[in-house]
Write a protein that binds this DNA or RNA. Structure first.
Length: 210
DNA sequence: ATATCGATTATCT
DNA sequence: GATAATCGATATG
């Protein structure tokens, strides 16, 4: 059955750290249908994860971990379940969650969300006039969803996404995706053929192929 | 409808 | 100095 109404807060439980201490491909697949939550005294934003990509360890030439550990990518090599945020093209932030056990690199990139709660706030953050027709523009892309959620590297890199207390976390409301499509990753030049992009089949909130 | 391009900066060669 | 896990705008069919 379609989920048109937002889940109740009490029904959403944080994903445990063990969920992320695995192969990014498995984490990516299972993150579909989960919920990204930003909450504070002033704001509550929730959105369902509808599109992600897996980035593997140092053997994955498309991954930031490919060149080994640096100051920028150190979160990738740390404990699982933490936010790795990077700045790209002089304009945009992108959000990953670290995977694999501590010491081993790997992550999942958040590419698109389906907005649930706080749509007005997201539109304000995106500087968009919200109409029924353009709701998908809020969070259909890795840069867009970060802007909608106010995610920046300085504020959020390294944040623990398994803790409600962190104010940015990933929850499970018990829903299970109906059908999943797997395609090559988008926007990369190296290892571009690997099928590591996971999305909810026919979901209108996924990003458009570029 | 698709194609191309400029913005703007952290990071790496 | 070149590149980049992008986006939004403009040009063209």
């Amino acid at each position: 059955m379609p989920r048109t109404k937002p889940p109740r807060t009490s029904e959403i439980r944080p994903l445990p750290r063990a969920f992320f201490a695995r192969d990014p491909r498995k984490v990516a697949r299972q993150l579909l249908g989960k919920i990204l939550i930003r909450e504070s005294a002033e704001i509550r934003l929730t959105a369902r994860i509808v599109e992600v990509e897996a980035y593997l360890g140092e053997d994955d030439l498309a991954a930031h971990a490919a060149a080994g550990r640096t100051l920028r990518n150190s979160v990738l090599f740390g404990p699982p379940g933490h936010a790795y945020i990077y700045f790209i093209y002089g304009n945009h932030y992108c959000l990953n969650v670290s995977c694999e056990p501590d010491g081993q690199a790997g992550s999942v990139l958040f590419r698109a969300l389906e907005p649930l709660e706080g749509v007005g706030e997201m539109a304000r953050a995106r500087k968009l006039d919200l109409g029924a027709t353009n709701k998908w523009q809020l969070t259909s892309g890795p840069g867009r969803l970060c802007q909608a959620f106010g995610i920046t590297r300085s504020a959020d890199n390294g944040r623990d996404l398994t803790s409600r207390a962190s104010g940015l976390w990933i929850g499970d409301d018990g829903s299970r995706p109906r059908r999943v499509t797997i395609t090559p990753r988008i926007g990369i030049t190296k290892a571009a053929q690997l099928p590591l992009r996971y999305l909810l089949t026919s979901n209108p909130f996924v990003s458009r192929a570029r």
